[in-house]
Computed example of a mutant assay.
Amino acid sequence: MHQTTRLTRSTARLALATGLVIAGTLLHPFGAAAQAAAPYTELPLDRADDVVATAERVFISSGNLSQSVAVTDPAGEVLGMLDALPGPADLLLSDDQSTLYVALPNVNQIAAFDTGSLTETARYATGAGACPSSLALAGDRLYFGYGCDQWGGNIGRIDLDQQPATVHTGLASESFYRHPLLSTVPGAPSVLIAGQPALSPASVSVYSVAASGALAFQRRTAHTAAGSNLRDIALGADAASVYLAQGAPYGIQAFAVADLNQQSMFIPTTAYPNAVEVSPSGARIAAGSDAAYQPDVFILRPDGIRVTTFELGQTLVTGALAWSPDGGAVYAVSQHWSGSPPQLHVLPVPAA
């Protein structure tokens, strides 16, 4: 999950106490000290936007001002490029990792690639769902959050099991300030999470997914329960919890999907959280912050206890964290505010 890359940093940062709040109780997690980041690869891109990983490939999109997706091996060595893609933004892998979906908001399309041969296999026009910018998959339904204008955001769907594939828009009864951030997990295809970005306070809604692909609104976070300026969301592997990375507060908020009235856990990080991803097994959470001179990436247990942290030396691109399928590494993409080429970091994760 991601939003537009943030390449500026405030010179002022607030001090952050290390702690964990669960049900109103402050606990003090103990974890390994911050590690120096693993060697990085400088990417042949001007900018970066999102990252996903299969067992054999890592894909990094370049955002709406460029036209490429970089492809590397699991160690970060550049293998090639997917080119002629107008403004590639959000990336998504099929559940079996055989297909890569690329959101192309500049041209109201979503492209599909075979992750083995790297050939384009389909191009879907989203029609009235202008500026598709976030992606989620539930079975044979590809959902996309779209919206070019303020309060013009909504959710669309592509039925992949039909030939030709059919596109539906306006699935949500509510309007979003901009394209909603979406999240699903393979283990619970009947649950879809939609986050309202760019507002203070932010909000998160839960929808149930019918067999037909229709969405039914279930519940929304209570007013002011979430923080401000939502930047990334992640659904837990069992769909029991949803995790939020926001400009404030300075940590990851967790909410029980069955009850969004109040946060179930708060995990302090550093200033300006901007990324969160749950490992495929659900045993670890990776969180990131747009932090100056402080750790950028945090590896956490589901109970919020910190396992280790990493300093990247550059700004973490918003939403640009991805787990390796085996959970042994996290891929993080960073870029300096000056506009130097983005870097791909392969971060080793301690065994459970």
Rank of each mutant, 00 (worst) to 15 (best):
P86H: 14
S340L: 14
Q196M: 15
T318C: 01
I252V: 15
A172I: 11
Y272G: 03
S203I: 10
P29G: 01
A237R: 07
Y143D: 03
S205M: 13
M1S: 12
I158D: 09
A283P: 00
T115A: 05
D95T: 11
G145K: 04
G247E: 13
V317F: 06
Y293I: 15
E77C: 07
A15R: 02
G63I: 09
S94R: 00
V317C: 04
L181Q: 11
P105Y: 00
V330S: 03
A234L: 15
V69Y: 07
N229H: 15
L199Y: 01
F30M: 03
Y40W: 09
S264P: 14
A188V: 13
A128W: 04
A248V: 13
P341K: 11
H168C: 14
N154A: 10
L244W: 05
F59R: 00
D303A: 11
G24Y: 08
G195N: 09
G327P: 12
D50W: 00
A239G: 14
A210N: 05
R231Q: 08
L260P: 06
L316M: 08
R9K: 07
L160A: 08
G313R: 10
A55K: 09
T18F: 10
Q35E: 15
I233C: 02
T315F: 05
Y177H: 12
Y101W: 12
H345K: 06
A214L: 03
G31M: 13
A84N: 14
D114N: 14
G282Y: 12
D159W: 03
A38Q: 09
A33H: 05
H28Q: 12
L100P: 00
V185P: 05
P325T: 04
T269A: 02
I22C: 07
P325D: 06
P348D: 05
P180E: 14
A245E: 06
V346F: 01
P201C: 10
G227K: 11
Q253I: 14
S94H: 00
A48M: 02
A283E: 14
G147S: 12
Y243H: 09
Q67K: 12
G147E: 07
V346T: 02
N274M: 05
R141E: 07
E42Y: 03
L82E: 02
A275T: 01
D49M: 04
F266N: 06
Y331Q: 09
